[in-house]
Simulated scan of single mutants.
Amino acid sequence: MKKWLIPVIVIAIIGYAIYSWAVGFNNTAVKLNENVSESWGNVETAYQRRTDLIGNLVNTVKGAADYEKGTLVEVIEARAKATSVNIDPSNITPEQLAQFNKVQGGLSGALKSLLVTVERYPDLKANQNFLKLQDELASTENQILTARTRYNENIKPFNNHVKTFPNSILAGWFNFEGKPYFQSEAGAENPVKVDFSK
């Protein structure tokens, strides 16, 4: 074998190894990113279900009682804000996720206020449509929790893949950045105060 052929073979082997590593990194990152996008879609679907149910709940409350208009207006406005925030799952930033969480938290707060205020209306509490919607909302909140948990579970392998060395070098070349985890709403660590005396 000629001496000049040995360096060419070594360079070819190294080049092929680097190519294989880059292709493997990119393909894995794309698959993991698709899992993140799918799980984000499930989060949005769960929130959309809640938003749809809240519209029905508000209409049931309006029709069943001479209800505090301020509480209903608050729920309607919070629902409108919650549906106005859209996020591209392939390019989620911590700021976008915080904004999404903030408006969803506002809707959650308005909804809690509505449900606490309902306690003063025995006819409404006995309304079968209202009770069914209340049960569906409770079920939907569990679906939201599950969807958010699965989203975070899909973020972890993606972030591990693109942030660990030496993959982090290729992540910059292929424009893959780590994604933020879904965090709890600000103040979620505080207990909920329920006051039926109003």
Rank of each mutant, 00 (worst) to 15 (best):
V103C: 08
F100W: 10
G63F: 03
Y67C: 03
L115K: 00
K69W: 07
S197G: 12
P166I: 14
Q99Y: 07
R150K: 13
A78S: 08
I6E: 02
E136G: 00
G63M: 04
P180D: 11
V10M: 02
L124W: 03
F100G: 07
Y181V: 12
S39H: 06
T45D: 08
K163F: 06
A80D: 14
S84P: 05
K193G: 13
N167V: 12
K156L: 11
V118Y: 02
L114H: 02
I169F: 11
D52K: 04
A82W: 00
M1H: 06
F196P: 10
P180L: 11
L114P: 06
L114G: 01
K62M: 09
L57Q: 01
Q134N: 09
V8I: 10
T60L: 04
F176E: 12
D88P: 12
I155S: 05
V58L: 09
R120T: 09
E141Q: 03
E68H: 08
S139Q: 11
W40T: 03
T60E: 07
V162L: 08
N42R: 13
I18S: 05
L145H: 13
T45C: 11
S197C: 11
A126E: 07
E95R: 13
N152K: 08
K156Q: 13
K69E: 14
F25A: 04
G24R: 05
A147N: 04
N33G: 14
Q183P: 06
Q183H: 13
P180Y: 10
K132W: 02
G63R: 08
N160H: 09
A126Q: 09
F182M: 14
S20F: 08
K81R: 15
F165G: 11
I9G: 06
N86G: 14
G172F: 09
A98S: 10
V30R: 02
V10L: 06
I87S: 10
S39C: 07
S39F: 04
Y67E: 07
E189Q: 14
V116K: 01
N86Y: 09
H161F: 09
F100A: 08
D135N: 10
E34A: 06
Q48R: 07
S168T: 15
V36H: 04
K179I: 13
N33L: 10
L32S: 04
Y181K: 12
F165M: 08
N142S: 14
E34N: 06
K62R: 15
E74I: 01
A80P: 12
T83R: 14
Q128P: 00
L131S: 14
V58I: 08
F158N: 03
S113K: 04
L133D: 05
L107F: 03
V61S: 03
I54D: 01
N167Y: 05
V58D: 06
N33F: 04
N91I: 11
E77Y: 07
Y16Q: 05
V75M: 05
S108K: 10
E153A: 14
I76H: 08
L53K: 05
V36F: 07
G109N: 11
A82M: 07
V8F: 00
S168W: 13
L137H: 00
K163N: 13
E74F: 00
S184V: 13
T51M: 09
